[in-house]
Amino acid sequence: MADAPSEPTLSVRGLTKRYGDTVALADVDLAVRGGEFVAVVGPSGCGKSTLLRVLSGLEDRFEGRAAVDGDDVREGGSDAVGMVFQEPRLLPWTDVRGNVAVGLPADVDAADPDARARIDELIRIVGLGGFAERRPAELSGGMKQRVSLARGLAYDPSVLLLDEPFSALDRLTKHEQQDHLSDACAERGTTVVLVTHDVEEAAYLADRVVVLGDQPGRVETVVDVDADRPRERTDEDLLAVRARIVEALGV
């Protein structure tokens, strides 16, 4: 326990990922403490999604090290990792409830009343209370994205990766869902890596913001967000953080 701070929950060292001749990530270092909320921002094509794919164990081949709780993501370390993809990726043949149930951990029986109650609770939290029995084809893009989010939360992983989970949501819903996510992860002590384009979102949600540079993706800057929680979106400190992120992005 004493050495817990020295071993970060998520540890990336010298991570380089190539697709053929294209370098998607170059020598990326990143350490995320347990329960920390890290946002990753950067220009399109800077390897943000690739980073999440590596961490979630979807990429077998890369150079360097990526580990969760000390276990390489290629050797079972990714089991503790859940991911909300950029696209909803729902099963079209089953309803919202069935799709959220996909996220339930393997040892939980979806037919169990407690599991069912939890699924319905998650569906309610993402604001789809009346839609549990709808199929994806009957939902709008934003609704599908929220189903996908609920699925990720159902998995209740120790590390949750989110790839622009709020991109298809209208402003109001987006703010609501950001708060829900923040509360849910704080409550469960979930470690979060959130990829986003939205500087305001990054500053509002994260403890630290990692800014990736242009191709090949390198860590440009890390911005600490020293604002107390619960935060106000209009907090002066956050505005300053936003300015620093924007400056680092060079836009």
């Binding site: 979630s56 164990g57 979807l58 990714s78 089991d79 990792v81 859940g82 991911m83 993809f85 696209e87 990726r89 099963l91 996909v102 996220g103 951990p105 393997a106 699925r151 998995y155």
Partner: peptide, 16 residues
């Protein structure tokens, strides 16, 4: 492939 990755990320296991 997208859906297979979902199955992989959520550790559904082969049979599931």
């Amino acid at each position: 492939e997208d859906l297979l990755e979902v199955a992989e990320v959520y550790d559904l296991g082969r049979v599931e």
